[in-house]
Amino acid sequence: MNDRALRYFLAVVRAGSIRGAAAVLHVAASAVSRQVAEMEAACGTLLLERLPRGVVPTEAGRIIAEHARRQADEAALLQDRLQRLRGAQRGLVRIRCGAGFLPDLMRHGLAGFSAAHPGITFQVVLGTSDSILKAVAEGEADLGLAYNPQAHPEVDAALVTRQPLVALLPAGHALASQRRPLLLRRLAAEPVALLPADHGIRQMISRVEADGGFRLLPVLETDSFELQRRFVAARMGVAFLPRFALAPEEAGEMTAVPLADPLLAEAAAHLVVRAGRRLPEAAERLRDWLAKHLVCCRPG
Rank of each mutant, 00 (worst) to 15 (best):
H67E: 14
F9S: 07
A247I: 04
D288T: 09
P149N: 00
A151W: 07
Q150A: 06
R7G: 03
V273G: 06
D211R: 15
V93D: 08
R229K: 11
T45A: 15
A15S: 01
P103C: 11
V219G: 07
R180D: 15
G127A: 00
P191V: 03
V56L: 00
L77E: 13
E249Q: 00
A137T: 04
F113R: 02
P149F: 14
T45C: 15
I205F: 06
G109P: 00
A88Y: 04
A23V: 12
L217F: 09
A260T: 05
G276P: 02
G91T: 05
M106F: 12
A245E: 11
L168P: 02
A37W: 02
V12F: 00
L220N: 14
T45Q: 15
A37H: 01
V232E: 04
H293R: 14
R70D: 06
A60I: 03
L110C: 05
A75G: 10
R185M: 05
L194M: 10
V192T: 08
G212P: 06
L85C: 12
E66A: 14
R94N: 13
G172N: 01
V24K: 07
A23Q: 06
G300F: 05
K292V: 15
E138N: 07
Q71T: 12
R34A: 14
A137Q: 08
R162Q: 13
S114D: 10
R162A: 10
A171Y: 04
D211A: 15
L48G: 08
E266Q: 09
L168C: 14
V160R: 09
S131E: 08
L182E: 03
V36Q: 07
P262M: 04
A188D: 09
